[in-house]
């Protein structure tokens, strides 16, 4: 299993468990989209706490899910990103539209 979902009070936590690159985004994108359209969350949380690597494929994947969440009237946040992942997020400018938060349990 390369991804875990936790649903609570219209909050959808997407726990990533594999390094995020072009290969893995191809695998998880559809699973995430199915989960979002099925659950219709008010907030989507991408939890990076279990992984240490993401390249620019992750940026495209996150922006795509951000648009989807917005379209359905929800919001999206990123939590527990390590320093390396933060660096990629910051470079992409994604930090200007998507809140990146510190540790959340």
């Amino acid at each position: 299993m390369n991804i875990e979902f936790i649903q609570k009070d219209k909050l959808l936590v997407i726990k990533l468990t594999e390094e995020i690159d072009h290969h893995t985004t191809e695998k998880i994108r559809r699973k995430i989209d199915n989960e979002i359209t099925r659950y219709m969350p008010r907030k989507v949380l991408f939890d990076f706490g279990s992984i240490s690597f993401m390249d620019s494929a992750g940026i495209g994947m996150i922006i795509g899910r951000y648009k989807m969440a917005k379209m359905l009237g929800g919001e999206l946040e990123i939590i527990n990103a390590n320093k390396a992942i933060r660096k990629v997020l910051e470079m992409s400018g994604i930090v200007n539209i998507i809140p990146i938060k510190e540790k959340v349990s």
Partner: peptide, 15 residues
């Protein structure tokens, strides 16, 4: 269309 961000070379250049 494949949700590519267009950041590949920018990342290579800055890293």
């Amino acid at each position: 269309n494949l949700e590519r961000s267009g950041m590949g070379f920018t990342i290579m250049e800055s890293f």
